[in-house]
């Protein structure tokens, strides 16, 4: 085969690699046709403003279940996993928290609480999370001032939604783990469990 043709074959293989790695999700029928698909997005689109070893910036946000929750209330009591997801009624996000809904025992075992945060407003989050069954963890709205907490942590994207990001904060209020994940993919549950177990060693 000529050199130039080899190059074409190589380009073809590279092309296939990218075609074959488009985002996928297994959407539950619970959401019916109500999910808006933004298609494949830029994997990350923000610059972190905190790092592991930093004190986690405190915040107070309204919860879907009523009242407000501050991060500082868990200092000295619980490890905290913060799960930022980009937006309600979108594919991957709708396919993430329901899984966390069945692993409360893992969080309990590791003396941890989960806080779910999006930049959606409370009514939207109420309607959306109602489809997910009984979520045992607080779902918080970072709607107003828009995305302030996401921005404080450096996970607010340029289009105003949060990254798909995980922050694990120990009982001293120190950031132990950060995963600003590809927005198109769900983080593996085992990565959270592994990091929580490290905190308990």
């Amino acid at each position: 085969m000529k050199k130039s043709n080899c190059l074409s074959v190589l380009i073809g293989i590279v092309l296939i690699f990218f075609l074959g790695t488009t985002s996928s999700y297994g959407l539950s029928d619970v959401f019916k046709d109500n999910i808006y698909d933004p298609k494949k997005l830029k994997p990350t689109d923000s610059v972190l403003k905190v790092k592991t070893g930093d004190s986690a910036p405190d915040f107070t946000l309204p919860a879907v279940s009523g009242g407000k929750i501050s991060l500082s209330r868990y200092v000295g009591k619980k490890n905290v996993v913060i799960s930022f997801v980009p937006a309600a009624w979108t594919p991957v996000c709708s396919d993430q928290w329901p899984g966390y809904g069945i692993v409360k025992s893992i969080f309990d075992k590791n003396d941890a609480i989960l806080l779910g945060i999006t930049v959606d407003n409370i009514p939207t989050l109420f309607a959306w999370t109602n489809q997910m069954g009984d979520l045992w963890f607080p779902v918080l709205s970072d709607f107003w001032p828009h995305g302030r907490v996401a921005d404080t942590y450096g996970v607010l994207r340029s289009d105003g939604v949060a990254e798909r990001a995980l922050f694990i904060i120990d009982k001293k209020g120190i950031i132990h783990y950060i995963d600003v994940h590809d927005i198109n993919k769900r983080p593996r549950l085992e990565s959270i469990v592994r990091e929580l177990e490290k905190l308990n060693k």
Binding site: S4, I11, L15, L19
Partner: peptide, 21 residues
């Protein structure tokens, strides 16, 4: 002609290699 050959080679690659995915 060269461009056409390259295009066909790429198209064949896309078809053959992408089939399983």
């Amino acid at each position: 002609k060269k461009i056409l050959i390259h295009f066909i080679a790429i198209a064949v690659c896309v078809f053959v290699f992408s089939f399983p995915v």
